[in-house]
Structure formats: C-alpha cells, structure tokens
C-alpha cells in the first residue's frame, strides 16, 4: 500500500482552511465529474480520488487523524499507533490475512486502513452516489450483425439479455442503463457500456451502410455483354453486363448493402467494381483470330 497524499490530489497546501478545500474540490469535481466525461476511465478514477480526498480533508476529525499518522504510516511506531487505535475502535475487519503486512494494496485500501472502511464511513453521510459504470467489449462477425439478434451476456456474474440491432458499426458503443455497479447509499446503479468489435471475414468491404466488392468478368462478356450471377450479402442476383464494359466500371445495387442501424427494412447499397480477366494459354487458332481482329481494328 502506498501513501496517498490527499493534499496533493486536491492541489492544496497543508495549511489550507475548509474554504480552500471546498473550493479546490469543487474546481476539480467540475473538471472530472463522470457526467462531464462520459466513457473516460481516467477521469472517473481521478474523480474517485478527489472525492476520497475531500471526504477525509473536509471532515476535521479525519483530517487530524490523517495529518498525524498519514505521512509516517510506513514507519512502524506511528503506524502501529494508528493500527491500535483503529483496533480499539472495534473495527470489524482485520487488515489482511498475512497478519497486518501492508504490501501491494491500492488507493481504497489506504483509505480504509486510515479511516476504518469506506463503506462504514460513507454510511455516516447521507450523500448518494451513482454506482460505477462498467465497460465491456463484444466481439462479433460481420455476418452476425446483418440481422438483429438476441444474445445473453454475463457481466460480473449477472446475465443480461441483449438485443443487438442489425447494422451496428465496428467500434460503436451502446449504453445499458442501470446494469453497472450498485449505487452507494441508495444512489442509482451505474450503467453498462458495451463496445462492439466487428470482424469482417467476408469478401465484402463495409463502409458505413454500403458494401463493396469486385467481380471478375471474362474478356468476351466484357466486350460483347451478357448476364452473370453475383453474390450479395443476402444471396445471389443476376446482372446484365453492358457490351464494351471496361476495367474498373462500377455498378450500384440499390438496397443490397448493409442494414441501416435501427431503421428496419432500410439498407445501404452494394457497389460492384468489375475487373476484366484476360484469357491466357491461347491456342493457335485463337491467336490467329485475335490477329485478324487486330488487323480489322487497325484498318478500320
């Protein structure tokens, strides 16, 4: 457990009076409040730290205790005093199973060791706090998000039934209200934020609601036109190829793209780029005929 300097956290001097503490706390709270920093874990951590510092320093009794033992807690005498004092206050919890060795512990442990447990301390105050927001990641394939589907997630031991709307984007975050940590002192529960990581292993590239793919045409179909069958995300469709179609020609299949998020029955487009496949391993006869064609072209 490392020593936590509450004065440093609030950016105030040890001689600061109640007004200075309140002012410093308010200023930092305005900066790091979770409502003003959605999805910002760093700000959330900082907000907890400044709240903890304020809880201690704004209470004269606790501030005195902190000022007396906090600084030298690592050095046994003063610390033992603090420990004995806390034991005499009939703390229900022992420090640790290792008989009071204070090794790798975190910020809240420091708070609890000095002030007898944040939970019991909080009970003395009627202030309510929203529970912690949870963040989770969900990995899906592109095919999974083509249609809305239900999925059951287990977050911190709680099963949550979730409907994932079709067309959700890679990296998109959705909020599930009240499924985060439990609120403190009857405060509201935190929220659950789920980030979607969508892996695309299909031959289609996705950009927003549109899908892109390329289709190879043989030389003769490209030159003379014809009909081909192409794959879309939903299945196969027949397409007419115009005569003299050139390399890189794009066609748009309206409504054959990806579903638009939360707009049922609305789809983006599928954009197909044609590539021309040149014939190889020509027979003698084919070479002759191509030469003939070449002559016609150069004379014509």
């Amino acid at each position: 457990m490392k020593f936590v300097d509450y004065y440093k956290i609030l950016g105030i001097d040890k001689t600061a009076n109640d007004k200075d503490i309140k002012k410093a706390y308010r200023k930092l709270a305005r900066k790091y409040h979770p409502d003003l920093n959605p999805d910002n874990k760093e700000a959330e951590k900082k907000f907890k730290e400044i709240n903890e510092a304020n809880e201690v320093l704004s209470n004269p009794e606790n501030r005195k205790k902190y000022d007396t033992y906090g600084k030298d807690w690592k050095h046994s005498d003063a610390f033992e005093k603090a420990k004995q004092q806390q034991q005499s206050q009939q703390r229900s919890r022992s420090y640790s199973a290792t008989g009071g060795s204070y090794s790798e512990q975190d910020f809240s442990d420091f708070f609890e060791s000095m002030f007898g447990g944040s939970r019991s301390y909080s009970k003395q105050r009627s202030r309510q706090f929203k529970g912690q927001d949870f963040n989770a990641e969900l990995h899906l394939n592109l095919k999974d998000v083509y249609q809305s589907h239900k999925q059951v997630l287990t977050v911190n031991g709680t099963k949550i039934r979730l409907t994932i709307p079709a067309g959700i984007a890679d990296g998109q975050i959705i909020k599930i209200k009240g499924k985060g940590g439990k609120g403190v002192n009857g405060g509201p529960n935190g929220d659950l934020y789920i980030k979607f990581n969508i892996k695309n292993t299909t031959k289609f590239k996705r950009d927003g609601n549109n899908l892109y793919t390329s289709v190879a045409l043989d030389l003769y179909t490209a030159l003379l036109g014809g009909e081909i069958t192409v794959d879309t995300f939903k299945g196969k469709v027949k397409l007419k190829i115009a005569p003299e179609t050139t390399q890189g020609t794009k066609v748009k299949l309206k409504g054959k793209g990806f579903p638009v998020y939360k707009k049922e029955g609305v789809f983006g487009d599928l954009i197909i780029t044609y590539t021309i496949k040149m014939p190889t391993k020509l027979s003698k006869n084919e070479i002759e005929l191509f030469k003939e064609l070449q002559k016609i072209r150069s004379n014509g």
């Binding site: 959605p38 984007a169 890679d170 990296g171 996705r206 950009d207 927003g208 892109y212």
Partner: peptide, 18 residues
C-alpha cells in the same frame, strides 16, 4: 457535440480502415 464528434471520429476510423 462531443457525442456527435465521437461518432464522426468512429465513422472516419472505419473509413480509414476500409
């Protein structure tokens, strides 16, 4: 505005990846 910008950044990131 922040939310809108985040969505825009996300869309641009996806476009860049494309």
């Amino acid at each position: 505005q922040q939310l809108k910008l985040k969505e825009e950044v996300n869309a641009l990131k996806n476009k860049l990846q494309f």
